[in-house]
Design a protein around this nucleic acid. Structure first.
Length: 204
DNA sequence: ATGTCGATTTGCT
DNA sequence: GCAAATCGACATA
């Protein structure tokens, strides 16, 4: 069906350059169909995390734990974990099995199902703050830790190819948020935002 | 077994 | 501007 044809294929996720995948994900459309509520949003902010040579990554230097083990699987699945014991954060696992690269989806511009998102967030439908942060996004889209490891070619969470093609100048790259503990690696410019979007996360 | 800290958000001062 | 919420991972014992 046409629905399937628009989904990003596994070959998109399994490329070996997670930085490139993080850049290419900006502008694509994240869709969830959970608890009978279908919602979608255009990805406007991402961050890349690399298993090798990136101390900000949960799985840096090949360290596997019960929490992060799905990062080591082949790309095209979700890595969802609990942050600060409160927020669910959604990542896209990339690269081949054995590597531990992933892209954190930090913000989306709401498209379909805005009223469902507002309902889940407990906010007014007109709010620009429905999904402008990694924890807010998962709450708005109904994504929880139980979705850890689900396929992005399945029927709960997937990403549709955008009808829009971005130019390199449409992307802003900057250091990642909240990773000061990573020392020098905290300075890596692996956060990517859609230039001019009003739906990216609040902080510079 | 116990203590610290985190890829954040929210509400109160 | 600051602290609380609150669970898993990790270091230390």
């Amino acid at each position: 069906m046409a629905e399937q044809a628009k989904r990003l294929p596994l070959s998109f996720y399994r490329r070996d350059d997670v930085i490139r995948v993080a850049q290419d994900l900006v502008g694509q459309v994240l869709v969830s169909d959970i608890q009978g509520k279908r919602v979608s949003g255009r990805i406007v902010e991402t961050e890349a995390y690399r298993g090798w040579g990136d101390r900000a990554c949960h799985a840096h230097a090949g360290k596997m734990t019960p929490r992060n083990q799905v990062m080591f699987r082949a790309g095209g699945i979700a890595y969802v974990y609990l942050c600060y014991g409160v927020h669910h954060l959604f990542n896209v696992v990339t690269n081949q099995a054995g590597s531990a690269d992933a892209v954190l989806i930090r913000a989306v511009e709401p498209l379909e199902g805005v009223s469902f998102m507002a309902q889940r967030r407990g906010l007014d439908q007109c709010s620009k703050q429905l999904a402008n942060g990694p924890g807010k996004l998962t709450q708005a889209m109904g994504i929880e830790v139980k979705h850890n490891g689900v396929s992005l070619t399945g029927d709960e969470i997937w990403i549709s190819k955008s009808e829009i093609t971005l130019k390199p100048t449409d992307l802003i790259s900057s250091p990642r948020m909240g990773v000061d503990y990573a020392g020098e690696d905290a300075k890596l410019p692996w956060r990517f935002r859609l230039r001019g979007s009003r739906y990216t996360s609040p902080k510079e």
